[in-house]
Amino acid sequence: TTVHLNGVTYTFPNPEEARKFVEKLAKTLNLKVEVHNGTYHIE
């Protein structure tokens, strides 16, 4: 599972880890999250 954040790409072997990371980040920084083909894009 891949996460794109400010031009940096993070790869998680575990989709659940990626989801938790994204949710925590989005909540902390009040960001918008979009998912395209299983890839998270955070703005």
Rank of each mutant, 00 (worst) to 15 (best):
V3N: 00
K24D: 15
V33K: 00
N6S: 08
T11Q: 12
A26K: 13
H41W: 15
H36R: 13
N6Q: 07
K24R: 13
F21A: 02
T39C: 06
T2H: 13
F12M: 01
L29S: 08
R19L: 12
G38P: 02
N37C: 11
L25V: 07
P13I: 10
E23N: 05
E23V: 07
P15C: 09
L5I: 13
K24G: 11
G7P: 01
R19D: 05
N30W: 05
E17M: 13
K27S: 14
T1L: 07
K20W: 08
H4P: 01
K24C: 15
V22R: 01
F12I: 01
L31W: 05
F12N: 00
H41C: 08
T39N: 15
H4V: 15
N37V: 02
T11E: 11
T11L: 12
G38D: 05
K32D: 03
F12S: 00
G7F: 06
T39G: 10
V8R: 12
L5A: 05
H36I: 15
E34C: 11
L29F: 12
F12K: 00
T2D: 12
N14R: 06
K24E: 15
E43S: 14
V8Q: 11
L25P: 00
F12D: 00
K32Y: 05
N37K: 04
G38R: 01
T2S: 11
I42S: 02
L25G: 00
A18L: 04
E23P: 00
A18H: 01
T2P: 07
E17P: 01
E16A: 09
Y10H: 06
T28W: 14
K20R: 12
L29H: 15
A26Q: 14
K20G: 05
I42F: 08
N14V: 05
Y40Q: 03
G38I: 02
E17S: 13
R19T: 07
V22E: 01
V3E: 00
T11F: 12
N30A: 07
T9V: 15
K32W: 05
K27L: 15
K32T: 08
H36S: 06
E43H: 13
N14Y: 06
Y10E: 01
K27E: 15
E17Q: 11
I42E: 03
T2R: 14
P13H: 09
T9E: 11
E34V: 14
L31V: 13
E17C: 11
K32A: 04
Y10V: 07
E16I: 09
H36F: 10
G7N: 08
V3C: 04
L5T: 03
F12A: 00
N14P: 00
V8A: 09
E34G: 04
P15E: 11
T28I: 13
E34M: 11
V8H: 11
K20Y: 07
V33Y: 08
H4W: 14
T1S: 12
V33M: 04
P15H: 13
N30K: 07
E43Q: 13
T9P: 12
V22G: 01
L5E: 02
A26Y: 04
V8W: 10
K24Y: 15
L29K: 04
L31E: 01
K27W: 10
T11R: 12
T2E: 12
N37W: 03
L25I: 10
G38E: 04
A26V: 14
H4Q: 10
K24F: 15
K24N: 14
T2N: 12
T39S: 14
N37T: 02
T39F: 05
I42R: 01
H36W: 09
T11K: 12
N14H: 07
L29N: 11
L29D: 09
I42T: 03
Y40T: 04
G38T: 02
H41F: 15
T1V: 11
L29I: 07
H41K: 04
T28L: 14
K27Y: 12
N30V: 08
K20Q: 11
Y40P: 03
T2C: 13
E17H: 09
A26P: 03
A18P: 00
P13D: 10
N37A: 04
V8D: 06
G7W: 05
P15G: 10
N14Q: 04
H41Y: 15
L5R: 02
N6Y: 10
H36P: 01
E23L: 06
K20L: 11
V35A: 03
G7T: 05
A18T: 05
T2L: 14
Y10C: 07
N6V: 05
E17A: 14
R19H: 07
K24W: 15
N6G: 08
K27A: 15
T39E: 15
K20T: 09
T11N: 10
V22N: 00
I42L: 15
T9G: 06
F12H: 00
